[in-house]
Design a protein around this nucleic acid. Sequence first.
DNA 1: ACGTTTTGTGAAACACGGCTAACTTTTAGA
DNA 2: TCTAAAAGTTAGCCGTGTTTCACAAAACGT
Lengths: 129, 129
Amino acid sequence: MALRESGEDYLESIYVLSKHQGIVRSIDVAEYLGVTKASVSKAMATLESNGYVEMGKRDVHLTERGLEVARQMWERHCFFVGLLEDAGVAPEVASQEGCHLEHCLSEESFEKLRSMLRRDGASAPTMTD
Amino acid sequence: MALRESGEDYLESIYVLSKHQGIVRSIDVAEYLGVTKASVSKAMATLESNGYVEMGKRDVHLTERGLEVARQMWERHCFFVGLLEDAGVAPEVASQEGCHLEHCLSEESFEKLRSMLRRDGASAPTMTD
DNA sequence: ACGTTTTGTGAAACACGGCTAACTTTTAGA
DNA sequence: TCTAAAAGTTAGCCGTGTTTCACAAAACGT
């Protein structure tokens, strides 16, 4: 089953939160994304059944497969946010809009765009990979 | 009521088709977007009730309000498609992915991005405004 | 160790945007 | 002009992703 935009967002947020916290719980994801814990619960069930995450008693973590997607999304996020910030967009707006841009391109297209614009990892929005 | 991505796509396609044809019918929009005429019918009803289009006996046309949105979307479409093509993405892929990119940014952010990348109207994908 | 608070889940509902199927209306050809 | 094809509408369904509300299960402080 193909991953949708919201699924990618969930994976990405688990990835980002795990860098801050180590252990990530559903409630953390809910707060980070601004959705209810019921939404996270439902989403995690789907992601788990598709092999993107594993759920322990009181934590969620990415599988190898989920990690790959999450890293890619985060990379794109950083790229687009940096690009927008360089263009003069306010960080908060850039971050918000980058969240949508990051889901629009295929792997190949993204790589081509990044090569052309070669932003050389400048200004990761919050932290580095 | 705020316009969603699909609403913007409908307006944009009416705009593009009207430049080819003059008169645009629901069926033309359906074929252009690859959806059923039932979907167009439903969408047009919503767009009309929100003042974006007006429906004659056998045509649909944009209101001033709808035209403004449509032109903006088309402008962005051309920008992103051109950008991707310059990056080496195949025209067909670029066009498809541009369709999604065009909905991600606010007016302000788009203008800033365009200023920075200054692509000077090069290579409008199909026709000019 | 017990009760309170926090966290997670399940059921039911909703919005959205598509679809099919059946129907009506319009257009247009013989 | 009349009938067949094309175009449009309506009703009902589906999948996705939310929500709220009620409840279950852990975790934690005293």
